[in-house]
């Protein structure tokens, strides 16, 4: 597209960050998509491995031990579990390797399943090159990456009213977390969210990570029911 230079906002280099390259493995069953993605990722990222099936992915990840795995939700092979299966099988590397889910699927059950398996974020495959690079860096720094759509799923699953103090902490979002999720769903970047709410980017990241943890750990009745309903599509 011709009119999109405004969209491109490379992450400003955070002072104190060592100019190292993030080691990444790309897992996707389409070779064309893998090579396209590799070309899109900028110079801060070093692609050290690729895989096209569940088995290959598990082997490659165990061998090169990357910092970030870009993982397609739908993958052939294995027991049919796709990206979720890769994450579970690589649980030994939980501390050092983070997973960022990539999908063309809009279906909530795919997204939520892979997040609950342990992925640190979810982005759609239509994401632009600089955005995906930012997302990879963010995940490598231990933060969570939410697309507007994932934020929408979260709001849908947890409800849009803030938590009472008496509620189980895991089952509802706090008022601040709701605000952050709403802004992300509205298409705001973390920086814009921070500006809108007069908080630091670091605080935004803390809130997003908290939401991710709730999404992963909550046994909230509505959440499971919601996921089950969506599976009935």
């Amino acid at each position: 597209m011709s009119g999109t230079p405004e969209e491109i906002k490379p992450e400003q280099v955070i002072p104190g960050q060592v100019p190292r390259k993030v080691r990444v493995v790309i897992v996707d069953d389409h070779a064309i998509f893998r090579s396209g993605l590799k070309a899109d990722l900028d110079s801060r990222i070093d692609v050290v491995g690729e895989a096209g099936t569940v088995e290959q992915a598990i082997a490659v990840i165990a061998e090169v031990q990357p910092e970030v795995v870009l993982l397609d939700v739908h993958l052939p092979g294995g027991l049919g579990g796709g990206g979720r299966e890769v994450i579970s099988a690589s649980s030994a590397l939980r501390g050092s390797t983070s997973f960022l889910a990539l999908s063309v699927s809009d279906a909530a059950e795919d997204v939520v399943a892979v997040i609950r398996a342990g992925a640190r974020g979810y982005v759609t495959k239509t994401i632009s090159g600089p955005e995906i690079s930012d997302a990879v860096i963010r995940v490598a720094d231990g933060d969570a990456v939410f697309s507007p759509r994932l934020a929408g799923f979260v709001l849908d699953a947890f409800g849009t009213s803030p938590a009472e103090i008496a509620d189980d902490e895991l089952d509802r979002l706090s008022a601040r977390e709701l605000e952050v999720m709403r802004l992300i769903a509205r298409g705001y970047s973390y920086k814009e969210v921070a500006k809108e709410l007069f908080i630091s980017i670091k605080t935004v990241e803390t809130h997003v990570s908290a939401v991710l943890r709730k999404l992963q750990l909550s046994s909230r009745h509505e959440l499971t029911k919601w996921a089950a309903e969506r599976r009935l599509l």
């Binding site: 597209m1 009119g3 999109t4 969209e7 507007p148 929408g152 849009t160 709403r182 509205r186 298409g187």
Partner: peptide, 18 residues
């Protein structure tokens, strides 16, 4: 001149579109 984000939230109190 670029991508447009639309967010719709409906609840008991009303509907909002951004």
């Amino acid at each position: 001149g670029g991508a447009v984000s639309v967010y719709l939230e409906s609840s008991d109190t009303g509907s909002e579109v951004f």
